[in-house]
Nucleic acid binder design. Sequence first.
DNA 1: ATGAAAGCGCTAACAT
DNA 2: ATGTTAGCGCTTTCAT
Lengths: 339, 339
Amino acid sequence: MPVRLKDIARDLNLSKMTISKVLRGQTDVSADTKARVLQRAKELNYRPNTTARTLRTGQTFMIGMVVPAIGETFLAEITEGIDQVIRSAGYGLMVCPSQQDPKNEERLVELMLSRQVDAILVAPMDESAPLFERLGKNQTVPLICLNRRLSGPSENFVGINEQEVGRVACEHLLAMGSRRIGYLRGPHTPVGDNRYLGYREALTNADHAFHPELVIDAMGTDCSDYTRGFEGMLKLLMGRTRPDGVMAYSDIMAVGAIDAALSRNIKIPEGIAFVGCGNDPMVCEMRVPLSSVVLPGQEVGQRAARMALRLIANPGKAENRKIFISPKLVERKSSMRCR
Amino acid sequence: MPVRLKDIARDLNLSKMTISKVLRGQTDVSADTKARVLQRAKELNYRPNTTARTLRTGQTFMIGMVVPAIGETFLAEITEGIDQVIRSAGYGLMVCPSQQDPKNEERLVELMLSRQVDAILVAPMDESAPLFERLGKNQTVPLICLNRRLSGPSENFVGINEQEVGRVACEHLLAMGSRRIGYLRGPHTPVGDNRYLGYREALTNADHAFHPELVIDAMGTDCSDYTRGFEGMLKLLMGRTRPDGVMAYSDIMAVGAIDAALSRNIKIPEGIAFVGCGNDPMVCEMRVPLSSVVLPGQEVGQRAARMALRLIANPGKAENRKIFISPKLVERKSSMRCR
DNA sequence: ATGAAAGCGCTAACAT
DNA sequence: ATGTTAGCGCTTTCAT
């Protein structure tokens, strides 16, 4: 039912080879023929069968991406960055959400491989096995791991320097004069653990004592991040060591914490300074404008895409690089004390 | 470099036909042969070339989806619903974000068509031209329009009944005893316009006067939805007609409005009752728990996926249906006045 | 139970 | 400037 080269060829008494040449922009065709072919193709609403082309050429001009779920702002920024780089190179991006199912994640990676995408980017879930373990070593399609660090030593990786995230937030609070810095800690994942390490590192670098009671495991999947931040903050306020600076794993947790502090009539930032993480535009302008550590998702996407294009251009040359993007800090009122 | 049927066949002194049969689970193969083939395939880490298979069979077992951007919660829910339905049928979902570029959106639809996906779902942007206009009428691949209603009369559509969204919110406030209901209106898009119509409809049905000064065009892309809600609410409070109930286009706008009201020492819900829209879990538990209109994204996805599978199973039979999912209301403190 | 032949729609390489 | 041949890896059909 769909129109093929053959159909156009028949209509114009030409060989399908000539049609193919015209439609791919080859120059060794007469101007007249070219015009006729283009017109007929348009009339018939011809669409090339990319499947056949791929089978022949081995190239899809598609980059596949496997993610736990769409919906996260950070991932959306990453795809923007990818798109900016690959579109001008003629590539397209297709995203497959695994819906948080490790089996499905694996199935989708297999699917993309068998679909001959030219490169694969994977933002693995926390529960994922390292990618190469499950793919067999004889991997020919370039594969890049994003965001989380579950990658083995031989994998390509692009992501945020998460330890620096924790360090930057803590150093900022120190610079703002906070001495007892509380941490509303996130999940015990590679990302969460690294941020925590950064927090500890900043304290050590500044010769500050570490108070274990200032770290709150704001866990529990039964309530929202906001509530976790709120309750965590209340716990901090009830503790022996009263913090004068608080950083949170996410912006929304920080907002919850701020609300808890306000409910106790604490002045922000004078009484306690706050820093969140993610720089979520929806959240950072609320109530007390929130200082936040920016995770440059677009940059992650751009670097990953460039790496992918490089790997595609040089097959076999496993470059095996790990790229860590540094976070940035946006200062807003929640931490702006007199220096 | 990748392993092919031919390679396994050579190793085992069989024809590639036999290999193909085994790997597709045909039964007319001896148990012994079958075992040997399976083992060798595993050893070589064989992955079928789906491109070749598709070229031969005409089926990809893939459903393509084109969206303005990933990152929206509502779209994420839709993909969950889709996945639930199609996965058990052996189909996969690939999502292509157009990054808000109409040209790119069109290009991606073309790309999926030429890639032989078995069906296409499009969540168009507001700026999109109706789909069928740009595709030519001789469309054979099933195509379904999601979410927004830019669809022409001959298109398949699954989405939210947006007018009902506005109506439900307004009716709820009326039932809670509000008499002067303010509306922090969203963008002037098909979705926004329909919700507004629902608001008007509810007022009319209840024989309530419509006060134009109670509708605030909370527009402007220069600030966040929160700020728009906040400022919009301040405007409402400065107007001649003081509202005793307020509905907002989004949850985050409602939260902004609530903060504005609280800053004026207004009691919630006693002084003013509030209803948001979207039931965003991140937002609805904040400060004053927010009543919100639920947009059942999963259901949209499920219905769309079922429609897609139906269309795939009955090629040519254009069923041309429009399905509107009704929203639901979740009542929380922000609107719970004594009845 | 196994295999040979043909072809899906396209393009690379090579005539004419 | 145009056309012929061959084949990408797989599956459908029809022998054996």
